[in-house]
Design a protein around this nucleic acid. Sequence first.
RNA 1: CGGGGCAUAGCGCAGUCCGGUAGCGCAUCUGCUUUGGGAGCAGAGGGUCGCAGGUUCAAAUCCUGCUGCCCCGACCA
Length: 443
Amino acid sequence: MQLSRFFLPILKETPKEAEIVSHRLMLRAGMLRQQAAGIYSWLPLGWRVLQKVEQIVREEQNRAGAIELLMPTLQLADLWRESGRYDAYGPEMLRIQDRHKRDLLYGPTNEEMITEIFRSYVKSYKSLPLNLYHIQWKFRDEQRPRFGVMRGREFLMKDAYSFDLDKDAARLSYNKMFVAYLRTFARMGLKAIPMQAETGPIGGDLSHEFIVLAETGESGVYCHRDVLDLPVPDETVDYDGDLTPLIRQWTELYAATEDVHDAARYEREVPEAKRLHTRGIEVGQIFYFGTKYSDAMKALVMGPDGSERPIHGGSYGVGVSRLLGAIIEASHDEAGIIWPEAVAPFRVALLNLKQGGADTDAACARLYAALTARGIDVLYDDRDERPGAKFATADLIGIPWQVLVGPKGLAEGKVELKRRADGARELLTPDDVVARLTAPVSA
RNA sequence: CGGGGCAUAGCGCAGUCCGGUAGCGCAUCUGCUUUGGGAGCAGAGGGUCGCAGGUUCAAAUCCUGCUGCCCCGACCA
């Protein structure tokens, strides 16, 4: 992508409504446009990152055996009357009417709808287990949206729903999502800690929140420091195998949100030097809720013994759009965002330090063609700007690698390769830069 | 939902107390110069001062009502 033809409305100054760093940087980097409190347009740069994050979530859901579908944003109120949540949900639910005066709502979550789909088709225990998910925009009419995408009213969420014959089987489904979440967040460069959590209006008696530690987070948390250093399973993890040891490893050390914090147990189990009380950003939450919805909505399957029984359910959410805020909170400096490679909107920023110079223009054109031909996403800054402005832009939008092409280096046949994360620079020939960036592991 | 604050050019702000030609910086456009960390000079364009009503010869400024946005708290898959 040539920057001169891209749409990247960066801001030199911070809009005054933005208080926390991720919100400020998303606005300054031209990722977001606020349309109303908690409602945003995703500008091209932000949209690219959102899609990268979404794709990682999708890949890990698929790997764990969940199956993607897509449900609508609008739902009939009748569905929610069946579960009893139409009245229970309260003013956070955005309620609307169509031209026929039928009550609709903009979905804040999809337990009812997925249960309706499930019960229409699945009649036998032989079809279980089943885990269906979608990645769709949700709406919650928050009393106080804040911090940009961290607490929006319209937000992108991955929500998965598992269906099992009994509690033991449901626990296996729960464990799969638990492990999938460990992998999902780790792939984005995040350290997300599973913590015991309240089940809230979803109901049920087993739940973990996945929390990224950050001072700007909205949740207070208590945990054992060693939980921060636990290993995340790699992509060879066998989801059909026994995940129990892995789950035990991740749950035996104390880690809880303040809502369910047990001070006595914390002090008993966690040595003083290992105690960590801080704040965090909730990026995912998993629930086992048993037969709460299958009872109310008659989602029954025939068991092996010939008797009908309600399925045991769980639901598993990831705040996809919120993750962008969490990643930036965890990875930035004074100059701007530092994207982990896995979610970066472009992998390489190619900076022509003397736009219009015959040598630099030609060298950039060759590099751009070579890198692009090898499938690398390159943002070529070909604007008629001075070097300083290009450096500032590249740093602000956080592209992992910068290739600096200027007359100084070219005199010796070299260009500079700079890593955004630590500022490390190397003088290389253009060919070596291409080789380096196409090497299998370059981080 | 309780408390606090803000609203003037695309962005950041001054002007409001004490009514009298709507300003500054950045950004934008034109020209020239400049080119390794957000350039310089010269010129130009851009505003129903959030909305509605009121007071007044005269309202960004005073009064009344409303709306939007932000922050703290409560709330929150």
